[in-house]
């Protein structure tokens, strides 16, 4: 199952609910304003680091770059994907649960 989060963790609790309720082993993709969760140095960093132990965590690179961040700015253990990588994640994981 692919879990997607597109809201900033500072503004909405979508990321919190996603991490709390997603089954272990899920793929979790941060995109749009959701990508702020995946970046080093914020107050959510340790929580995301922990999440990488339970989930495969991804962040959409074009959304990171649009907001002034680069692949090297994401937390260790989080993988960046481009749009075709996004498509692959959807294809590989069958169902998508969007945390809006």
């Amino acid at each position: 199952m692919l879990q997607t989060v597109n809201k900033s963790p500072f503004e909405k609790n979508a990321m919190q609910s996603c991490l709390r309720l997603s089954p272990q082993g899920s793929a979790v993709l941060f995109y749009e304003d959701g990508v702020y969760a995946a970046v080093k140095g914020t107050r959510f960093e340790s929580q995301i680091k922990e999440a990488t132990q339970q989930f495969s965590v991804y962040a959409l690179l074009p959304d990171l770059e649009a907001r002034g961040m680069r692949a090297e700015d994401v937390i260790d253990g989080v993988k960046t994907v481009d749009y075709s990588g996004f498509v692959d994640l959807v294809a590989d994981n069958g169902a998508v649960q969007a945390w809006l």
């Binding site: 500072f10 503004e11 770059e65 002034g68």
Partner: peptide, 12 residues
């Protein structure tokens, strides 16, 4: 709050 992100450098 997230408004700070508006003026972050290097948007692409």
């Amino acid at each position: 709050d997230d408004g700070v992100y508006q003026i972050r450098k290097n948007h692409n």
